[in-house]
């Protein structure tokens, strides 16, 4: 820019050619020179933008999480605790509403189930699936209560208590499936 100014100033000294070069209306360099006024402006405070908004504006993708994270005992026991809790509440709600809504009482349905002749194995599988959420949620709940006292929280202890809880839960569930009220007692009650 300063070069242009200097050339413009030296136009007379450069002789006729220089003058032409600088002062030509259309193609001359002088046409690039234009007045500019500088004005002071108050600094604008930076926009307050949330973490999510900013990243979404920049169109950054979210890194994969649930789909790539390796299943470990810690997370698997936790999620199954939640699932068994959901199953338990579903059982309670379903059986409770069923008892109100259904035309016949629930023991009748149980008798009908027995009449279906699925065999001992089939019935015990159904019984296991009813019993397991209860036993699992019970024993894992005790594990969580122990954790709440601030104990058994090193990773080794977490794994040991996890395996103990799993064996206890499965054993209890099997015990509950084996359990049956002997028919003699029923008769006595009647």
């Amino acid at each position: 820019m300063s070069l242009i100014f200097r050339l413009a100033g030296a136009g007379n000294r450069l002789g006729p050619i220089g003058c032409q070069f600088m002062r030509h209306d259309k193609s001359g360099l002088i046409s690039f020179v234009r007045p500019v006024t500088l004005k002071a402006q108050a600094a604008q405070p930076p926009k307050e933008e949330g973490h999510d908004e900013r990243n979404m504006r920049l169109k950054r993708p979210q890194s994969p999480h649930l789909t790539i994270y390796a299943p470990q005992l810690t997370s698997m026991l936790s999620i199954s605790h939640r699932f068994t809790g959901m199953a338990l509440s579903a059982y309670v709600i379903a059986l409770g509403i069923g008892a109100i809504v259904l035309p016949e009482s629930i023991p009748d349905y149980i008798e009908k189930l027995e009449c279906l002749e699925i065999g001992e194995v089939g019935i015990s599988i159904i019984k296991f699936f009813l019993a397991f959420p209860l036993s699992y949620h019970f024993w894992n709940g005790i594990r969580h209560l122990l954790w709440d006292t601030g104990r058994f929280l090193t990773i080794k202890e977490v794994y040991i208590t996890g395996y103990i809880m799993l064996t206890l839960a499965i054993a209890t569930a099997i015990g509950l499936t084996m359990l049956c009220v002997p028919p003699e007692e029923e008769q006595r009650e009647e």
């Binding site: 470990q72 969580h144 601030g150």
Partner: peptide
């Protein structure tokens, strides 16, 4: 925190954030 304990199992410095959170709750 639901005490999943992924934090304790993953910590490269072998610290126990799960225990710290339990203590914090106490």
């Amino acid at each position: 925190c639901h005490q999943i304990n992924n934090c304790t199992s993953v910590c490269p410095k072998r610290l126990e954030p799960g225990r710290a959170i339990a203590q914090l709750r106490l």
